[in-house]
Design a protein around this nucleic acid. Sequence first.
DNA 1: GCAACTTATTCATGAAACTGAATATATGGG
DNA 2: CCCATATATTCAGTTTCATGAATAAGTTGC
Lengths: 117, 117
Amino acid sequence: MNKLPETVFKALSDSTRLRCLTLLSLEGELCVCELTHAIQMPQPKVSRHLALLRESGIVADHRRGQWIFYRINPGLPSWVRDILERTAREIAPTEPFVLDRERLANMVGRPGATCVV
Amino acid sequence: MNKLPETVFKALSDSTRLRCLTLLSLEGELCVCELTHAIQMPQPKVSRHLALLRESGIVADHRRGQWIFYRINPGLPSWVRDILERTAREIAPTEPFVLDRERLANMVGRPGATCVV
DNA sequence: GCAACTTATTCATGAAACTGAATATATGGG
DNA sequence: CCCATATATTCAGTTTCATGAATAAGTTGC
C-alpha cells in the first residue's frame, strides 16, 4: 500500500511547511536561516518542520560549511514535483507568500547559495 | 489571509478522503452508499469525512430522492481542480484505488446517477 | 402511520500533531 | 581552546483529528 500521496499532502497542509516549500520551489535552494528570516518564525520551529519534510522525502538537504541548504527533493515522482510547482506558482501572488519573498530578497548577509555566480 | 491551500491539502491527507475524492474525480458523481460500498468503510465514517469535505468547500452535494450525491465542487479554483484531477489520474492505477473502482463497477443496484441518460 | 432504506450526528476515547522554551550539537575563526 | 553562529533535538502542554458504537433524521412506498 503506497502512502506517498497522503504524505505529500500532509506536508502541504501546514502553513509553516507550505511557506517553506513555496519559497524552496520558487527560489531553488535555501538555508535554514534564510527560511527563518523570510517567514519570521522561531528557528527551532522551522527546523522541526524541515526535519519532518526531510524524513518524508519531500525535501533534500546538504551541508555547505556552516549552513545546511534545503531544496525540493529532485527524486520525487514528476507528478508530485508538478503539484508542488503548480501550487507555489498559484499561491505566490497572495499573502503571506509575497511578503515572505520580499523579506528574503531584502535579507542582508545571505549565504548567497542562489546568487548568480 | 487565504487558507484554501492548507484546507485542500488537509482534505487530501487522509486516506479515506483521498479514496472518496479519487472516486469522485474519476467517476463524476456518486452517492454515499456507492462510496461506502466501493471503499468498504462503515457508513458513518464515510459520512463524516464527506461532511468535512463539504464544509471545506471541496465537494458539493445534492439530494435526489433517497440518495445524496456528491461531486467535486465545480466552483473550486481551476488550479485546485487540476490538482485533484492530476492526483486522481496518477494514483488510479495503484492500490487501493484500483480495487475501489472494481467494487464500484460490480456493485448491484446502483442508483445509476452516472448512467448514460 | 409504519417499515425499509439512506444518510447524518453525537459521544467518548485514543492517537497524532503543533508549539514555546530550553538545551544540545556542529562548524568556523581567532 | 573559546566564542559566535547555525542548526537540531528534547520536553511538556494543548489542541486537533480519526474512530467505533450508538442513535437520530429524512425519504419512499404501502
